[in-house]
Nucleic acid binder design. Structure first.
Lengths: 327, 327
DNA sequence: GAACAATGTGGAATCGATTCCACAATTTGA
DNA sequence: TCAAATTGTGGAATCGATTCCACATTGTTC
């Protein structure tokens, strides 16, 4: 494998001169520069990132920690991240926790040891333990999808989106509206989406039965189960907001099993603009977050931070309602 | 940041001795070993991968090249890969080509420069250009989902799976069976799945109208369009095999638009066991490939190759039919 | 008892790049 | 014309690890 030593010999200069040409730093005569560039081109020489990194302490690698790559939100964000990072010569080192929260902390340590230039956390819960570890490792960090104090973060306007969804139902004449959420330890999906729902209902003078508000987990089966719980009682709602498309799809499958018509007997909406949402029967009303763009923006901010340029600590992505046959 | 020099000073030994302890190589007295281990533990010291790599020429990083991370097959394979690789202290460097074939070759070069220990290609077409480049870069490589001569590859039995699917339709009384495929440059999805279909039909003495065999691309919309083409002619089939779930789902949406009943008017099946397939109406019959396991197996073989242990050049993953309401 | 082997250790060389220092030649300005 | 600044260059030091060599001590075998 060719090294800078070989290039220097071929171009009749020293390694310092080759380095000056490659990095466009310091004085180099035009003659010497041309000779070096010619040799580099004809040999296809590229310097070792490892040797460079040892000296410059930069790796051009960003670590990305996520609970799964198999769902749309994380995979879209990673796509956006990768698109922007590769424009600047950076690569993604993937750290998949497989939903194991402890692994998140382990990966932060591992990525520090691997000297990544920055770390992006996707679909995390920014709890005290995580925030403490983030402060400790002292690497530029971006959190995507969750608020994080004193850390660059890109979020979606969960609160406003759900308020608007709720308003949509009310405008369509619904007064009894149910809600399928997740644990509020997930501030974005669990807390703010619920708060948006409850605040809009209160603002419209509409009450919410305790039995209409269910807590699920992030899978289709638990949406199914939650709808079952909602419909167990006499005072039944006529519409349901689920905090993810998966939960909505699970709920829909329960309704169909019970012979109930969507949206005639129950209107329903989700969040996430999953591909599946489009092909449900009827097609599911949903909120489209700009996940790929969130990834791109996250990449821009972390690069600005790494390269000591001004950055925005907080970005809130826009969203749009996709109104379909389920409402 | 702590280095081996600091550890040596704290433990009252030389850097060589610390290195011997960390790598369990060469003679070290019990006394010295205990002191070093104690200091390493209390400081949380971990050696720089970059410095190690400079000397050992190993990086403990595997490059993964894929056209998209947003679909189920690649994301499941990556999940399986990551699970196995992380057991052995390896990390994944993600290289997403965004369906740009030229980028695949660029990424091979980039990953060589980054001195990854191995490269995994997912959802590629092993054409002559790619195979030439693979020979040239001389890094352990695994191809997943496609056959590749002289390269470790993990495949699915596309041919046999589609023969079995075709037989299933015939056993249910269908004689007029349509096929929605993709370009045959994709040997696995385009060629072998089609060949399985045609061979089984011929073996059963059943003819296939030219208009019943359509070529689509890998998206739902083109499955919709393909079904439109199939139904344009008088002699209509009563069943359709699509080479991916997405194409099947697109076809289904066309049928519904035309007011046709699935499976009464047209039975339909896809391949890929997508999550969506389960929630279609009726639920889609599909072939489940073991994508995560393919990733795990691919990881095992590439690690065996990297570590100069015996490996299998060709693995064929098993599959299972998931028979649902669409047939 | 001597020669050979095993044990244990420290320090230099090495990996491949960048960076800084020293030196020489040339140019500029007073 | 001379001093200072600029231009151009090569080589050593450095980054943080591993590895090998040289040396000293201890143990074993003939």
């Amino acid at each position: 494998m060719i090294t800078i030593k070989d290039i220097a010999e071929m171009a009749n200069v020293s390694r310092s001169t080759v380095s000056r040409v490659l990095n466009d730093s310091g004085y180099v005569s035009e003659d010497a520069r041309k000779r070096v560039e010619s040799v580099v081109k004809e040999t296809g020489y590229a310097p070792s990132e490892y040797a460079k990194s040892l000296r410059t302490k930069k790796t051009k690698v960003i670590g990305v920690i996520l609970p799964t790559i198999q769902t749309e939100t994380p995979s879209r964000i990673v796509t956006g991240l990768g698109r922007e990072l590769s424009k600047h010569g950076y690569q993604i080192l993937l750290a998949n926790t497989d939903h194991d929260k402890e692994k998140e902390l382990e990966y932060l340590d591992l990525l520090k040891v691997r000297q990544v230039d920055g770390i992006v956390l996707i679909a995390t819960n920014a709890d005290a333990k995580l925030m403490k570890k983030i402060k400790e490792i002292n690497i530029p960090i971006v959190v995507i999808g969750q608020e994080a104090e004193d850390v660059i973060h890109v979020t979606y306007d969960d609160y406003r989106a759900v308020r608007e969804l709720t308003r949509l139902f009310i405008q369509k004449g619904h007064e009894k509206i149910a809600f399928i959420g997740v644990d509020e330890s997930d501030r974005a999906v669990g807390y703010y989406r619920k708060k948006g729902f409850l605040d809009e209902m209160a603002a419209q003078g509409l009450s919410v039965e305790k039995t209409w508000v269910q807590k699920a987990i992030f899978d289709i089966a638990s949406g199914h189960e939650a709808m079952g719980e909602i419909l167990k009682y006499a005072n039944k709602p006529t519409a349901t907001i689920a905090v993810t498309d998966r939960l909505a799809i699970g709920a829909m499958s329960y309704l169909k099993e019970q012979g109930l018509e969507i949206p005639t007997d129950m209107a329903i909406a989700g969040i996430g603009a999953s591909e599946m949402s489009q092909y449900m029967e009827p097609p599911l009303t949903t909120v489209d977050y700009q996940n790929e763009k969130a990834g791109e923006e996250g990449a821009k901010q972390i690069l600005a931070s790494i390269e000591s340029r001004p950055f925005q600590e907080k970005l809130v992505m826009d969203y749009r309602l996709i109104i379909r046959g389920s409402v």
